[in-house]
Simulated scan of single mutants.
Amino acid sequence: MNLNFNQSLAKNYKSPSQIIRVLSEDWVANQSYCPNCNAEPLSEFTNIENGYDKKDEQILKIFQIEIIEMLSNIVEVGAENEQEALLKAQEMYRNEEVFLYSDDFIGTKFNIFE
């Protein structure tokens, strides 16, 4: 494995972010491999394209999964009505007067996006 970038690819670019993008994309395309099955080179897929699992010789559909962790804490707020109490609690939260900690965890929700 060659750990050096092909510097000649950078000659047509001035922006440092463009240079590193071009150099790193070329390096990954030519030097990377799958550590699980030693497949070389890696197959190129977009983020929403189907993937290929060489080990099981099957096409895999790629899913985007949203993971939501929920925290809950009850705070006491003095107010004349419910609306005022909600506004005061929201302000306390925004002003970091109320904190939610890991022991306030109440659940996890998973949503599938295709």
Rank of each mutant, 00 (worst) to 15 (best):
E57F: 07
A79C: 03
V28S: 03
S72C: 07
G78A: 09
N4T: 05
K61Y: 06
L9D: 00
K55Y: 05
I67L: 14
E76S: 12
L100E: 03
E97Q: 15
F5A: 02
I19Y: 05
I20T: 05
N12E: 11
K54A: 13
A39Y: 07
A29G: 05
Y101N: 14
T46V: 07
N50Y: 10
E91Q: 13
V98M: 01
V98C: 04
Y33I: 01
R21W: 05
C34E: 07
S32V: 01
S15A: 14
Y13Q: 01
Q58G: 00
F99W: 04
S32N: 13
F105T: 06
A10L: 02
S102V: 03
D53L: 08
E66H: 10
I68M: 13
Q7R: 08
I67C: 09
C34T: 08
E114D: 09
L9Q: 02
E25T: 11
V28Y: 10
D104M: 08
K11C: 02
Q90D: 06
E80T: 12
I65T: 12
I68S: 14
F45Y: 15
F113V: 00
A29Q: 13
N2E: 03
V98L: 06
I68A: 12
E40R: 14
P16N: 11
Q7D: 02
S32E: 09
S102P: 02
I65C: 09
G107R: 09
N47I: 03
F113P: 00
K109T: 02
G51W: 14
V28E: 10
K55F: 05
S72A: 12
Y93R: 05
S8I: 00
N73K: 15
F105A: 11
M1P: 01
P35H: 05
N36L: 14
E84T: 10
V22K: 09
V77E: 04
Q83K: 15
I68G: 01
N4H: 05
E49H: 15
L86D: 09
N81S: 14
E80C: 10
I106M: 11
Y33H: 07
I65M: 14
D53S: 11
C37W: 06
R94H: 12
I59M: 10
E114I: 03
Q64S: 08
L3C: 01
E57P: 00
Q64T: 06
Q58A: 02
A29M: 04
Q7W: 03
P41S: 12
V98D: 00
W27Y: 11
K109H: 07
N30L: 06
M1I: 01
A10C: 03
E80V: 08
L9S: 00
E84Q: 15
K109E: 07
N73F: 04
L87W: 06
Y13N: 03
K55V: 07
